[in-house]
Design a protein around this nucleic acid. Structure first.
Lengths: 333, 333
DNA sequence: CTGAAAGCGCTTACAG
DNA sequence: CTGAAAGCGCTTACAG
């Protein structure tokens, strides 16, 4: 292994001079010496040892991405997309990314963040219940995504889930639907809760009631979908699912039973995944800008890494209707 | 920051004794001392510094996952699934995972592998052209996936792509299709090339010819799909796409033009993603076991990390037909 | 612009 | 079963 010392000896200078060259300390090494050292470095293929660097500088060029959801977090196209984008934004800044997948077992998170002395961490998925403790135990820059924690001074990037719910309700009602169903009822996820709240409030404003029995949990089993959407005495004509993936599952079950979307029943999704554009029918959905969200999360993190003391900020991105073909206009009956 | 030294002082022993306790060196510390030290460790929340450990031991508990495909590698549900599974298998072994996303820029890979002194690396995606150099520059355990490099002593986990192509051709022909199209022609990807070769060979064995003009590149633009599958003077009746995602895109374009699958034209995919089970029609496809592949890659890597000198091995998983609803039986004409 | 000294927090290799 | 010494490969903080 080629070391600093070796380069220094070959160049006839001290290790400090080589150290200054590789760290690009400006105006501290003569151009001539710098050039000579650079030559020797590339000739011998010297690569600095990050462990030694981090140990002596008591810092690291490492960022952790902590993703909650078990070994299959990345089954969700949303999460996968976030991870991919965050990874490349982090690398663009010359940092490396450690990926920690956890399954609601926060115990380990602090330990791992500490042992690697990471400069900061981004959290993906539901962490609200452990958030307070995580922040207390880790006095490094932490950026959460989609958090609804009421902690003050939380740095977070989220979207306007409530507004998304409103838009969906409005769109369905504008198309004449008043018997509505909601898929994504959840006691744990504030994200889903807000989408539901926005949906219900927008219904109410328009004199439409979302019946309790027409709500389904996130990822409902097929028989429950059938019971609520097909076999009910008075089945709904419009369905809002809180993710595109679930919306497609709904459409699939519906179509297994001979119902056509949107002729017989309208379905909306949430996320605007690529999938929705190639499905049959093309999915009408609420778009969120995943790449932007990833970019902001990384930017915020580095702001806090580079300028400790930067005020906490909670950035909320807006959300838009993408009209495609899965919502039909209901004729007056 | 709590250090070894601090724990040692509190316990009234040397740092070596504490070091032995945290490294679980058996039968080297009296039970009593061990218990006392453990108490102090958990009381003070001591976490060993991985950098110091790695520096002095000249090793690390780090594995790199190098994924080729740019900032959007994880758009591919296949890659996303591999990353998720590899991540959790690596963590199960007490190692941490660094995720390196690259975009055909292998220059940097060696530098990053070195600077972090990783114990080993898994490669995801197309690396064959740079593989030789990567192996030469990095004398650590390296596991490739889906490689068709002719390098001897390559450790790789792949699937029988050729057989997958054969199965697809056989299934279409068995269902009466003789005018076939292939989507996934590629000059760069040996994986796709093998699927095509298997497909063509199986056709030929059955006296069916795959016409050059009925082959489409991977991810074909819509107008090309139309030209080959719709507007041709004698359009094909059966299409094999080398990924489920592309198969769904094909079906989407077809259906935009009023063609029904499988009534008017049959379509097969490859991978057996969850997607295929919820699409309309449900996709007939070739299944590969992604979780198993990820598991084997991690197992092989750790075998080589733990026992240097373990012989290289190229493991090839089989592939299976999953019959659903996108292939129809062609009536005799 | 350059360098000698000390130290980051551990482990290795010995010695007892 | 326990410990003193040396060292991993860098950077920090000074000094000149």
């Amino acid at each position: 292994m080629v070391t600093l010392k070796e380069i220094a000896e070959a160049a006839g200078v001290s290790v400090m001079t080589v150290s200054r060259v590789i760290n690009n300390v400006p105006a501290k090494v003569s151009e001539e010496t710098r050039a000579r050292i650079m030559d020797i470095i590339s000739e011998r293929g010297y690569v600095p040892n990050s462990f030694a660097r981090s140990l002596s500088s008591r810092s690291s060029r490492l960022v952790a991405l902590v993703a909650n959801g078990g070994n299959n977090v990345l089954r969700s196209p949303y999460s996968a997309s976030m991870v991919g984008h965050i990874s490349s934004f982090v690398q663009e800044r010359g940092f490396s990314l450690m990926l920690f997948t956890v399954d609601d077992d926060y115990e380990d998170v602090t330990r791992r963040l500490r042992t690697w002395n990471v400069a900061g961490a981004i959290f993906l998925g539901l962490f609200d219940s452990a958030l307070k403790r995580i922040r207390k135990d880790n006095q490094i820059p932490l950026v959460f995504t989609d958090s609804y924690s009421t902690e003050r001074q939380l740095t977070n990037v989220g979207i306007d889930d409530y507004h998304g719910g409103e838009i969906a309700a409005k769109h369905l009602i504008d198309n004449g639907h008043t018997k509505l169903a909601f898929v994504g009822r959840s006691a744990e996820s504030p994200v889903l809760r807000e989408r539901m709240r926005g949906f219900m409030d927008a219904c109410q404003e328009r004199g439409v009631t979302l019946l309790e029995e027409r709500t389904l949990p996130d990822n409902p089993p097929a028989d429950e979908i059938e019971r609520v959407l097909l076999k009910a005495s008075d089945p709904p004509t419009g369905v809002f699912a809180t993710s595109d993936f679930v919306a497609l599952q709904i459409i699939s079950v519906l179509s297994d039973h001979g119902l056509r979307v949107p002729e017989d029943i309208s379905v909306m999704g949430f996320d605007n995944l690529e999938l929705g554009a190639i499905s049959r029918p093309k999915l009408t959905t609420i778009k969120q800008d995943i790449e932007k969200k990833a970019q902001l999360a990384v930017e915020l993190l580095f702001e806090h890494i580079q300028k400790p003391g930067t005020p906490a900020q909670n950035m909320i991105l807006d959300v838009f209707l993408v009209e495609r073909a899965s919502v039909g206009r209901l004729k007056n009956t």
